[in-house]
Amino acid sequence: MKTQATEQEMLLNRTGIMTNPELSAELIQGAKEAEPSPDGDLDDIAAKRAEYVEEALPIGSKPMPVAEGDITGAADAEAEGATDAGQALSLLLDKLGERLAFERQGTRLYEGVIQKCELIGDSEGGPSVADLRHIHDEEMEHFKMLQRVITEMGGDATVQTPSADIVGVLSHGILQVVSDPRTTMAQTLQAMLNAELADNDGWQMLITLATSLGRDDLEEDFEKALESEQEHLENVRGWLETLTLSEAQALPAAEDDAASERREHESRSAKKKSSSSRKKKKK
C-alpha cells in the first residue's frame, strides 16, 4: 500500500501569499499595524552607500603592454584627442580582455548546452546538437583570435582585466542557469540569450572603440566576429521563442473537467490544511 506521496506528486509552488490565505491575512494585518523602526526612508541607505563610493578604489588596474607592441594606432588616436597613447592602448586592452574572457566562458557555456541537448534530445523548433556545436566552435575561434590580437599588440592575453572581471561577475548567473541539471532547454536558452545580447553589444562597442583609436586594422576580424555573433543571437532568440510558444500551444485550449476538478480539490485541501494547523496552534 502506498503511504507517502512521491516528490513528483507533491509539486506545488508555495511562494505566493494565496498558498495559505488565513495565515497570510494575519501576516498582512500584523505588518499593517506595526510602526517602522526607526522612521526614515531610502535616503539613509543612499547616505551609507555614499561613504563607500567616496573612498572606493577601482576594481583593478587596466593592463599595460608587456612586450614591444604596436601602439602606432593608439598614437594616431592621441593626435585626434585621446590624452595619452599608453592610456588608449590600455583601454583597448581592457576591453579586448573583456571579450576574450566572455568568449572563453561562452565556449564552456555552449559545452554545457550541448551536453544538455544531447541528454534531452532535439526538441521541435529548438536547437540541434550540430547547431550548438557550430556556435561553440565560433566562440572558441573568437577567443583564439583575441588571444592573437592582444599578444600582437604587446599585451598579455592571460590578464584578467577589470572589464573581464566585471563580465565574469555578470555572467555568474548565466553559468548557474546553464549548469543546473533542473533547467529546461528553454530556460537554458533564456540564459544564453542574455549572453548573446551582451556579446553582440560587446563586439559593437569594441569595433567602435578600436576605430576611434585609429585601429582600423582590427576592423575586418572584429566585423566578422560580430556578424557571427548576430547570427548566434538571432538563432538563440528564435529557438527560445519557438520553444516558449510551442509550450503554450501544447496546453489545451480549455481545461478539461478532470484537471479543473483536481486543481479545485488541491486548493480546498490547502485551505483546510492551513486552517487546521492554525487551530492547533491556537489550542
Binding site: A67, R104, T107, F143, K144, Q147, T151, D156, T158
Partner: peptide, 12 residues
C-alpha cells in the same frame, strides 16, 4: 596552461 586549457600557446 596559461589562459586555460582552451588557449593557444602565444609567441610571448
Amino acid at each position: 596552461k596559461p589562459g586555460t586549457e582552451l588557449a593557444d600557446e602565444t609567441p610571448d
